[in-house]
């Protein structure tokens, strides 16, 4: 249930998306394109200094978007980057990264060496993951979720996907509520379940029950869609408005992406 609580917290935390900050003021289509370009710059980068520069940019963007730095760091350092840090630790050793040893130690009679290549690779991997996660977090925190899904249309995502995503997003809320209520009902009737087998059975029955309810629900949703004028093809209202600041931001992102590629090719040649 902890995963559910985390999900619920993230779903319902729309606090920063409503602030009047730099990223919140950008047209969602431009913001998606800018973040995607920066993510590509991170993906293609083979230069640690350029990655650090991009990470600093993330922190500045968070500050200018009125996101509390403590909250942003907590959100972006815990989970994936920390997990990646532990994944990268064995890569410091010469078993996985052969190269010039900088430190050696004995563990259970086995001599292990930390190599220069291992340290460089692990740091590179960690900073890349951290910067990517920070960019994704900036997008999520500063955009209302429904606007983000709607903006996908600029990438020519098929309409069936966009419509399904929009509807799916709404039903996720409902399903979380149903599951929470079901668990609360089980807890109030049987208390804490100690048996693994019983626990698995409860989860399976919950999933099957959810599927039954979903099936019943789709009939009602269809009736609701018909009553609103749905006739086979979904129609969406576009509410996007762009201004010159959006174009300047996009140009800056394109320049940064190109500079990254150029820097890389200069370093390689």
């Amino acid at each position: 249930m902890s995963a559910l609580s985390f999900l619920k917290d993230s779903v319902f935390s729309d606090e920063y998306a409503g602030c009047r900050g730099f990223l919140q003021a950008r047209d969602t289509r431009f913001k998606v394109a800018i973040i995607f370009l920066l993510l590509l710059a991170v993906l293609f980068s083979k230069n640690i200094y350029f990655l650090i520069l991009l990470y600093m940019l993330c922190l500045f963007l968070a500050m200018f978007s009125k996101i509390s730095l403590g909250f942003f760091l907590k959100r972006t350092w815990i989970f994936i980057p920390l997990f990646s840090f532990f994944i990268a630790l064995p890569a410091l050793l010469d078993i996985f990264s052969p190269g010039r040893p900088v430190l050696s130690f004995n563990l259970a009679g086995i001599t292990l060496r930390i190599t220069q290549q291992g340290i460089a690779g692990a740091v590179f991997f960690f900073v890349r993951v951290l910067t990517s996660v920070s960019l994704a977090a900036l997008l999520v925190l500063t955009t209302r979720h429904y606007a983000l899904l709607k903006a996908l249309r600029i990438f020519r995502v098929p309409q069936i996907f966009v419509m399904t995503m929009g509807m799916c997003y709404r039903y996720v809320y409902l399903f979380i509520e149903i599951i929470e209520n079901t668990y609360l009902a089980i807890k109030s009737r049987v208390g804490f379940v100690h048996s693994v087998k019983k626990g698995q059975m409860i989860v399976a029955v919950n999933i099957a029950g959810l599927w039954q309810r979903s099936y019943i629900l789709h009939d009602r949703v269809y009736s609701a869609m018909l009553s609103r004028g749905y006739c086979g093809e979904p129609k969406a209202i576009d509410e996007f408005n762009s201004d010159f600041k959006d174009w300047i931001s996009l140009t800056a992102a394109i320049l940064l992406f190109s500079a990254g590629l150029l820097w890389q090719s200069c370093c390689l040649s």
Binding site: I160, Y171, I176, I179, L210, D219, M225
Partner: peptide, 25 residues
């Protein structure tokens, strides 16, 4: 046409399944 919302609801169902923590020995 009637089954279009089913797809969205199935996607939400699939999303939620990944959130269930199942006890392991």
């Amino acid at each position: 046409t009637k089954q279009v919302p089913l797809l969205a609801i199935s996607a939400a169902f699939s999303f939620v399944i990944m959130m269930f923590n199942i006890p392991i020995p």
